[in-house]
């Protein structure tokens, strides 16, 4: 990790807001502290001094990599939805369940809302996020102009983030395994491992993501 001081203070030692280079100014999205961040070298990371929010962390070729990882996650998600993820044997009967079954079991009856919510949290929203990241970042990685509505789509992808709960679902599977252990014998299916892989890839992908760089690139290329 390189070491630089991106803060180029003006004579007063503070960023001068009347300077024409308002584009170089960045306010910490969390606490509003103002910084002058012209060009942060690739591979380094800048944090807010008082609330330690990461302001920017550009990485080489990050956009292409994020788009590719999002593509991988989307494919894994399709596998995770349709393949069985748990297999249960009890009293001579075998039951295989896919994620789709989890959702469909509530589809009739008073728990439709719950079914919709579960489907949204573990499948629809994560998938929507992967697809919108590909839509926004693939043209960026290739050096093209942003796709139509890329800015709105990326803002939506960011909003969805806390609501995509694939990793929480995995812990839920683990707890469920132990809860029925006394009732029946359970084994994990291929979809479970697809889910685990998907969660790990998502974690790596989010680690590459520098929001400030993406926003700035979108803004510049839109003009």
């Amino acid at each position: 990790m390189t070491e630089t001081d991106p803060m180029l203070p003006t004579e007063q030692g503070k960023p001068d807001p009347n300077d024409s280079a308002i584009e170089d100014l960045v306010a910490c999205p969390t606490c509003d502290a103002l910084y002058r961040l012209p060009n942060i070298p690739i591979g380094s990371r800048a944090r807010c001094l008082r609330c330690h929010t990461v302001l920017t962390a550009p990485r080489e070729g990050a956009m292409t990599r994020i788009a590719m990882l999002a593509g991988t996650s989307a494919i894994l998600m399709i596998a995770a939805v349709f393949f069985p993820f748990l297999e249960l044997t009890a009293a001579g009967m075998v039951q295989r369940s896919s994620v789709l079954d989890v959702v469909l079991v509530f589809a009739d009856g008073p728990f439709v809302g719950l079914a919709v919510a579960v489907a949204a949290l573990i499948v629809v929203l994560p998938l929507a996020r992967f697809l919108s990241l590909i839509y926004v970042l693939a043209p960026m990685g290739l050096g093209w102009r942003p796709a139509p509505y890329a800015i709105a789509v990326f803002r939506m992808a960011e909003r969805i983030r806390p609501w995509s709960m694939a990793e929480i679902f995995i812990v839920g599977v683990a707890v469920a395994l132990i809860k029925v252990a006394g009732l029946a014998s359970l084994s994990l299916g291929p979809a479970f491992w697809a889910f685990v892989a998907l969660v790990l890839i998502t974690a790596v992908k989010d680690n590459f993501m520098c929001r400030l760089t993406i926003w700035k690139t979108l803004e510049h290329r839109s003009q």
Partner: peptide, 22 residues
């Protein structure tokens, strides 16, 4: 977000354990 675990556990169990009479 992690509080959602129990909701998922219930959803998984309900989907999985539908063995008629047993």
């Amino acid at each position: 977000r992690w509080s959602m675990i129990d909701v998922f556990v219930v959803a998984i169990l309900a989907a999985l354990v539908q063995l008629d009479f047993a």
